[in-house]
């Protein structure tokens, strides 16, 4: 059955239709939550909270976006709320340690001798990446996961996180610089061919 039809029936109280919507989207949402919180136990609980909240708010779903996009938003909100409870001071953190232009210039830049699509097949490298992503403050992590892992647009990410598109872009850039920095020591060319920036 078409998604819009399922939503309509779920709204009219057809619980089976709602369950079908859940089944269609739960893997995606679980994957998102796992990346946001980093552990299966929390992801499992948040998954339940997310869909309960989706059910209770079904009348607010506009139907102009995909059901899954709407649930993404709920899931991200619940994950961020949990971070706020646990660790209020780190959620909104404005500054994250990224190298300044001066530092990069002094150190020099060298290319990485790897094919990223092949590299991610290695368990060790995936572990490295996931740790680096989890080292980001939650709001930065949410931006990078929604944009670069889940492939949401800047506008969709801004909506999901209730921040401006400008803030999405700034945070995404800083998060990528942070991740690049975390990965650099592992991937830099063995050959000593660093080149200084001007």
């Amino acid at each position: 059955m078409e998604e819009a039809r399922l939503v309509q029936r779920a709204r009219q109280g057809d619980f089976g239709a709602f369950e079908q919507l859940v089944t269609r989207t739960e893997s995606k949402i679980y994957g998102l939550l796992l990346r946001l919180v980093g552990n299966p136990e929390d992801a499992r609980e948040l998954l339940q909270e997310t869909y309960l909240s989706a059910y209770r708010n079904l009348d607010r779903f506009q139907g102009n976006a995909a059901f899954s996009t709407w649930v993404y938003r709920i899931a991200t909100n619940h994950a961020l709320m949990r971070f706020r409870k646990k660790n209020p001071e780190t959620v909104g953190l404005d500054e994250i340690p990224v190298p300044t232009h001066e530092e990069i210039r002094e150190r020099g830049v060298s290319d990485w001798d790897l094919d990223p699509k092949e590299a991610v097949l290695q368990k060790e490298i995936r572990g490295l990446l996931n740790r680096a992503i989890l080292d980001l403050p939650p709001l930065y992590r949410a931006v990078v996961v929604l944009r670069d892992v889940e492939g949401l647009s800047t506008a969709e990410t801004a909506q999901a996180l209730e921040i401006t598109e400008g803030a999405v872009k700034t945070r995404l850039h800083r998060a990528r610089l942070f991740l690049r920095e975390a990965l650099s020591p592992h991937f830099e060319d063995a050959r000593d061919d660093r080149q200084g920036m001007r």
């Binding site: 994957g31 796992l34 990346r35 830049v109 290319d111 990485w112 790897l114 990223p116 699509k117 590299a119 991610v120 490298i125 995936r126 990446l129 996931n130 992503i133 990078v144 670069d148 892992v149 492939g151 990528r176 610089l177 991740l179 690049r180 990965l183 650099s184 991937f187």
Partner: peptide
Amino acid sequence: TLKKTVVLVRYSG
């Protein structure tokens, strides 16, 4: 290297 970072992240999960 920034492009490679983005691709790595995209396929990390």
